[in-house]
Computed example of a mutant assay.
Amino acid sequence: MARPRHAAPPAPETPAQVLAELLAVQRGRFAALDPRLPEAAAPPPGDIVVVGTPPHRVAGVITHHSWPAGSGPLLWSAAQVSELHPVVGAAGHAPLHALVEAWRGRMLPAVLREPDSAATVTWPSRDVVATRVFLDHGLVPLAVLAVRPPGAVASPPPDAGLEIRRADDGDVDACVRLALEELAYSSQVGGSVVRADAEAVKRTVIRDRLGRGEPTWIALRRGRAVGMMECGRAESTPGTWLAGLLPEGAWGYVNCASVTAAERGSGVGHQLLAAALPELDAATSDVPPRGTYLYYNPPNPLSSVFWPRAGYRPLWTLWEVRPAGGLRGL
């Protein structure tokens, strides 16, 4: 008599399969959170971590970045960065806590010992469930990516003593001075770092940007530069890094805005933005213009007021703790 056959147990899911399943659910989460978010994108390659069991299973990818001495990102980033890319589906507080705990357990020992290090995660600003979890683990909302639809700002009051024009190669020294003033201020209220080579790095970046004709506006009073708005254009298209952050289309962006201390509150920033936005919002390709974006620091008492008044609102929050070893367990 033949023995009855039993079906073989199903093969366990691979971490990649778990990521794909959770990502499909996460897309629904993002769409419900904020209509301005793009479709939730797959995380970059890295160390995959899966925590829990259905229906409370979550996953994430951990990546590591190192910035060499003299590189531009070191003016706003730690030298060693561990980044978590959550793929959590519709999970609530408890699974998210477990994911952050697992992240800390998978950090490289060298990163945990490094003073010039950071643990970071970028997440939709309107997801308050995740906000509670990140705060509990010692992460700080150090920056936001804010967006503004196309359209002019309200006309600023006239200032006959102020000249606004596009910066050119002859304005490098003035632009560097203003950029360093902004860096010094931001280092007190955000993630910027004043490093020994800051002036050389800023000079190289600004000279190259002006040489490429990237739009930068400068404000002058009695011939002296008192403000600057360093801008650019980018396209969010499938496969680009921007596609994971912004809906598909053409975007203008504000890279750096600086007003010298004696002129803050006098309307110089408003005048610069009013001059810059029409060009940044203009269509420059077959890709439809979607608006402009920028990063600002919520702890900054100036930019956290100025940019929302100008119509920018948070889309993504960049959570961070420095050094990375400061990421707390519960």
Rank of each mutant, 00 (worst) to 15 (best):
A98V: 06
A98R: 15
A98N: 09
L99S: 10
L99A: 11
L99F: 03
E101L: 10
E101N: 05
E101Y: 00
A102R: 15
A102K: 01
W103E: 07
W103H: 15
W103Y: 14
R104D: 03
G105W: 02
G105P: 00
R106G: 08
R106V: 05
M107Y: 03
M107P: 06
L108V: 05
L108P: 00
A110I: 00
V111E: 14
L112D: 01
L112S: 10
L112N: 01
L112W: 00
R113F: 02
R113G: 12
R113M: 01
E114A: 15
E114L: 05
P115M: 01
D116T: 06
D116P: 12
D116I: 11
D116C: 09
D116H: 10
S117T: 13
S117K: 12
T120D: 13
T120V: 15
V121D: 11
V121H: 00
V121C: 15
V121Y: 01
W123S: 07
W123F: 14
P124I: 10
S125C: 09
S125P: 01
S125Q: 11
R126M: 05
R126V: 04
R126C: 03
D127N: 06
D127R: 03
D127M: 04
D127A: 05
D127V: 05
V128H: 12
V128M: 07
V129N: 13
A130H: 03
T131V: 13
R132L: 14
V133M: 09
V133P: 11
V133K: 05
L135H: 13
D136V: 06
H137N: 11
H137Q: 07
G138I: 01
G138F: 04
G138V: 12
G138R: 07
G138Y: 05
L139M: 14
L139W: 06
V140Y: 14
V140E: 13
V140K: 13
P141G: 11
P141W: 01
P141Q: 11
P141V: 12
P141H: 10
P141R: 08
A143M: 14
A143W: 14
V144E: 10
L145V: 11
L145H: 03
A146C: 08
A146Q: 08
A146F: 06
V147E: 08
R148A: 11
R148V: 08
P149S: 13
P149Y: 07
P149E: 13
P150F: 11
P150C: 12
G151Q: 04
G151P: 02
A152S: 13
A152C: 04
A152N: 11
V153M: 00
V153C: 07
V153L: 11
A154I: 04
A154D: 13
S155G: 09
P156S: 12
P156I: 04
P156H: 13
P158N: 05
P158R: 00
P158E: 02
D159V: 05
A160K: 08
E163A: 14
I164C: 11
R165I: 07
R166E: 14
R166I: 02
R166N: 04
A167I: 09
A167T: 12
D168F: 02
D169V: 06
D169L: 13
G170V: 05
G170T: 14
G170F: 04
G170Y: 08
G170K: 05
D171H: 06
D171N: 08
D171C: 08
V172Q: 03
V172L: 12
D173K: 02
D173C: 06
D173Y: 00
A174R: 02
A174Y: 00
A174N: 08
A174M: 06
C175I: 07
V176E: 03
V176G: 09
V176Y: 02
V176F: 03
V176P: 08
